[in-house]
Design a protein around this nucleic acid. Structure first.
Lengths: 141, 141
DNA sequence: CTTGTATAGTTGAGTACGCAAGCAATATAG
DNA sequence: CTATATTGCTTGCGTACTCAACTATACAAG
């Protein structure tokens, strides 16, 4: 219960700030961050989907939007004509870096006010142990 | 990050089970539980909204559905003609009790497998301290 | 009483997804 | 080499929301 409430309130607050300051939804930002950390800032669409826990169809539509904004581009794959990569554009890169700054500040503001550093770490550790993240790649955002 | 991932996976899993076993979404269940714990199993619609972190319009539509299923009914207020109460029906009461059982079992299965009792308590305590729950009424679900 | 302001609730339009179905391209088997 | 799965991706449709605008009631001040 607390989990659900905390999540709903937290995503609402952080999402609203991201939206206001950068015109991005949390999902948009999430995808951009994945690309930011990927080699050459490129990823297969399906890998993005798995990473951010959306379905492939969700990713298609989400990337449509980011492409229209000029933040990401497409690149096809030589060895497998089925796959297409999403790549961060120059503009997308700048956008990510700006949004990352302010998003981190927002998070610090909320979590920092409530929890000591040690407690934040504890929280992270407990959440990581839930048997739910299929590809729980490390990510320090 | 871990928080977002854990939430997405958790709600997906629990939501799917609730849907399969009882035909309820998480939000439906959430509302029913609030009513279940309320005096006379009745609440003002706006109080439900605040409690489950949905907007009033979301509550209107959600309750529409539950009313069509015969799980809740309406009751008007004598002292204030603006408010209307949502009340659990007999059938709704039975439904809640059944769903509660199996939902708790699902939660125990997931959390119990991952965390010791003491850790679960710790997690709950940390989440409760986030400054995000406007009306963080006690609720032990 | 009247006039403003706040509150409870609904409704219309729009959005962000998921699911199921489909299309290509690839991999595997016979 | 054909036939059958499997994989990556997209599309149509449905759903669960939100936001902004609206109605109706309540309350407070002049």
């Amino acid at each position: 219960m607390r989990f659900l409430r905390a999540h709903a309130a937290l995503t609402r607050e952080l999402g609203a700030r991201l939206e206001a300051e950068h015109g991005l939804t949390m999902s948009d930002f999430d995808v951009l961050i994945q690309l930011y950390h990927a080699p050459e800032h490129a990823m297969r669409r399906i890998d993005i989907a798995r990473q951010v826990l959306l379905t492939p169809s969700g990713i298609t539509r989400l990337l449509d939007g980011l492409e229209r904004c000029g933040l990401v581009g497409k690149r096809s794959c030589d060895s497998d004509a089925r796959v297409s990569y999403a790549v961060l554009t120059e503009e997308g890169l700048r956008k990510v870096e700006a949004a990352r700054q302010s998003h981190h500040a927002d998070i610090d503001e909320i979590f920092g006010a409530a929890l000591e550093a040690k407690e934040r770490e504890q929280l992270g550790e407990l959440l990581a142990r839930l048997p739910l993240a299929p590809t729980a790649k490390e990510c320090s955002e």
